[in-house]
Design a protein around this nucleic acid. Structure first.
Lengths: 187, 187
DNA sequence: AGAAAAATTTATCAAATGATAAAAAATGAA
DNA sequence: TTCATTTTTTATCATTTGATAAATTTTTCT
């Protein structure tokens, strides 16, 4: 998915602002398994996925939590860095070879403070992530792990093929062994 | 907490813009137990809490999920209405008599599209809610219900006094009976 | 205060998930 | 292909939480 489509999908921007916006991006290719964002430092850039898939996760005493998967069109972002300029809990790794659009947070913030169309794009971006977060939270509170798994494969059918089961389990908030058992009991 | 403090806490705005912003609010007083936002219609306003406490929840086939509590300074908002202009799953009720600041979404969107300072305030508002949502999600995935309960009383110690236990339980994603058992096992 | 209603606790049994270990299957590198 | 590694499945037992019911305590209303 190209950067023009990605930006438009979030919120349309007038032509001259969008041109300026798009010029601020740089294209990068990075290999599978690369850890592109580390929780122990403030990340200075954000990325959009042209091609490939990434995983955001947090490390804790025992084990890790998968916060999100990002497929084509999604953002690779440390919210703590982007929003609070603080190092945080977010690690992001690439699960496939990826082509990415990269922009520095500083450059982005300059655009926000000088161009009202881009500022409103930035608002819409945060708002849409917020809606997703709320929906995910509700679905997590509500159903059993089985229901959440079925919902996930319905919403993101290709994910199962592209991502190891252990990571899916950690996204669903259960162990890999439990997910395997759930899968056995479905069919 | 007055509207000036509430707005500033989210993101500072220059004096003339803020004056314009604050003039767009209306103060309203509403009684305990009032359902001020209903999931079956698009809500045309958002509110900030000057005094009191509110609860956002969703109704489903069996039971309901408490999405959030809002104390002084918090926002009472149907994200689905505010962001997508759609009716959604969010009901909001007042748990105490409340004094609120009210603004229509239309008025707010006009301010966003004409004033870059207010547009960036709107961006910061969504971003901060997003950070909260992510932190809540992680803490929910990570720990047991007991840990989440302890975390909640540490972060919002007055909440326990102000809110019935059943609602706290539904916020934690467990039944009221389970929370009672957890409390019995702590001390 | 006294009665009714609501909230909280306690108890019992069932269901879902975790922890651990081991086997089986799939993947990747030489 | 073959071997080593990783991933997935299966099995067993322990723990957590749910469902239900009943008892107790607290709150609300008159």
């Amino acid at each position: 998915m190209n950067i023009n489509q990605i930006l438009d999908k979030i919120h349309p921007i007038n032509t001259s602002s969008k041109l300026k916006f798009i010029e601020s991006f740089e294209e990068v290719s990075l290999p599978k398994n690369q850890l592109i964002i580390r929780s122990d430092k403030v990340e200075k850039s954000i990325y959009f996925i042209k091609k490939g898939i990434a995983r955001t996760f947090s490390n804790f005493e025992d084990g890790e939590v998968t916060i999100a998967f990002g497929e084509e069109g999604a953002t690779i972002i440390s919210l703590k860095s982007y929003i609070l300029n603080q190092k945080g809990y977010e690690n992001i790794e690439l699960l496939e070879d990826c082509e990415l659009y990269k922009i520095s947070v500083t450059k982005l913030q300059n655009l926000f403070s000088t161009d009202i169309d881009i500022a409103n794009w930035g608002r819409k971006f945060a708002e849409q992530e917020l809606i997703k977060a709320e929906q995910r939270f509700i679905s997590n509170q509500l159903g059993t792990a089985t229901e959440r798994y079925l919902e996930l494969i319905k919403k993101h059918p290709t994910l199962i093929q592209r991502v190891p089961l252990g990571l899916i389990a950690s996204y669903l908030g259960i162990t890999q062994v439990s997910l395997s058992r759930i899968r056995a009991n479905i069919s």
